[in-house]
């Protein structure tokens, strides 16, 4: 159902993303990473009646919803949003283990809603920046594994530097790339003097997919994926 969650995505994914896949969604700022993932989860939940969890480390729930509203992306009842703002404010003097806490938050929502099937983390960069880097990197393997064991189809958002606009996904975030089942890249490219946003599926295990960059647009109905950019 996820391949039908955004208008035009079915032209990039020839078959369904296997349940329990962990997918990186990578791109520079302003490339619609949060919008794409939130839209996929929201539309998927509308059709399936499942529940989903969107964990935001950077924004509060309200600012995220405001942002989604400006993109005409609606939140559905079964999509739960959890943010760390209160926790970070109240425990400012303490070292917090955000990857373990995120697992606990997932456990809570899974226990509360039997059919919680989709998950998103916005973003892995924020998780790294507020945690002690070295042990966290080691914990990533465990984190990816626990998402799979939970049977959650997961989207982990990663922001790449702005200087990478229109270049290929290369050396960035290598450990995550190896651990992930899929990588979706979002970016901007200049074609004939016009800057266009694109989506490209670089990897998706057990799924046949297009490799070309496809234009992604936003209108009053939300996100649309159009034909190949070149």
């Amino acid at each position: 159902m996820l391949r039908n969650a955004v208008n035009g995505l079915e032209n990039l994914l020839m078959n369904e993303i296997p349940a329990g896949s962990v997918i990186l969604v990578n791109g520079a700022e302003g490339t619609l990473k949060s919008g794409l993932v939130f839209s996929m989860l929201s539309n998927h939940i509308t059709v399936t009646g499942e529940h989903g969890l969107y964990v935001s480390l950077e924004q509060t729930k309200w600012s995220h919803l405001q942002n989604m509203n400006s993109l005409r992306i609606k939140k559905v009842d079964g999509l739960h949003i959890f943010d760390y703002q209160d926790m970070r404010k109240e425990w400012i003097d303490r070292e917090l283990d955000f990857s373990t806490m995120t697992e606990e938050v997932i456990d809570f929502y899974k226990n509360k809603y039997d059919n919680l099937k989709v998950f998103a983390l916005d973003s892995l960069n924020a998780l790294y920046s507020i945690s002690d880097d070295a042990p966290l990197r080691k914990k990533m393997y465990h984190f990816f594994l626990s998402l799979r064991e939970e049977g959650l189809t997961s989207f982990l958002i990663m922001e790449s530097p702005p200087s990478r606009l229109s270049t290929q996904f290369t050396e960035w975030h290598q450990p995550e790339r190896f651990l992930a089942d899929g990588t979706i890249e979002l970016g901007m490219v200049e074609v004939n003097g016009v800057v266009k946003r694109y989506i490209q599926i670089l990897k998706m295990r057990a799924t046949r997919h297009a490799m070309e960059k496809h234009q992604i647009t936003i209108d009053e109905n939300g996100l649309n994926i159009l034909g190949p950019i070149y």
Binding site: F82, D86, M87, W91, L96, T100, M101, T102, E103, E104, V105, D107, F108, Y109, K112
Partner: peptide, 12 residues
């Protein structure tokens, strides 16, 4: 009680 188990209860 760890933070990851308390705050979700408060929010829900």
């Amino acid at each position: 009680l760890s933070q990851g188990t308390v705050y979700p209860i408060l929010y829900t």
